[in-house]
Amino acid sequence: MDTGKVVLGALAGLATGAILGILFAPDKGTNTRKKIADKGRDASDSLVDKYNEVINSLSSKLEKAKNEGLNYFEDGEELVKNAKSNISNHLK
């Protein structure tokens, strides 16, 4: 299962549980609405943080893969250059 979907599902479950807990707790309507809004903001902030973590992780992995690819390319160029040089020297 995709990690992003698991995180999103967990956050949605937490938010739903928190909202239901607030709705069924005896309190004034204005306090309940404020608590729901606060929990919604907290869940939204948490989701944004998780999103940014995933994006940063993917960016880091992409940069690493790019650097490894460039290293392989440079190694390949060096091998071809050496092979050409060896062939030229061998033919002389």
Rank of each mutant, 00 (worst) to 15 (best):
D2W: 01
G4V: 12
G4Y: 14
V6Q: 12
V6C: 02
V7F: 11
L8R: 15
L8T: 10
A10G: 06
L11M: 15
L11R: 15
A12G: 06
L14I: 08
L14C: 00
A15S: 15
G21D: 00
G21P: 05
I22Y: 10
L23M: 04
L23Q: 00
L23P: 00
L23G: 00
A25I: 07
D27N: 04
K28A: 13
K28F: 10
G29N: 11
G29V: 13
K35E: 01
I36S: 02
A37G: 01
A37Y: 00
D38C: 00
D38I: 04
G40Q: 04
G40R: 04
D42W: 07
D42Y: 10
A43C: 02
A43P: 04
D45I: 04
D45R: 07
S46T: 11
L47F: 02
V48P: 02
K50S: 09
Y51S: 12
E53T: 04
V54I: 13
V54A: 14
N56S: 14
L58H: 15
S59V: 10
S60T: 12
K61A: 13
K61I: 12
L62C: 05
K64I: 03
A65S: 04
A65T: 07
A65N: 08
E68Q: 07
E68V: 10
E68S: 04
E68I: 03
G69F: 03
G69R: 02
G69M: 07
G69N: 03
Y72M: 09
Y72C: 02
E74V: 08
D75G: 06
E77V: 13
E78F: 06
L79D: 11
L79N: 12
L79G: 05
V80L: 14
V80S: 09
A83S: 13
K84M: 10
K84S: 06
I87S: 13
I87D: 05
H90I: 08
L91A: 10
K92G: 12
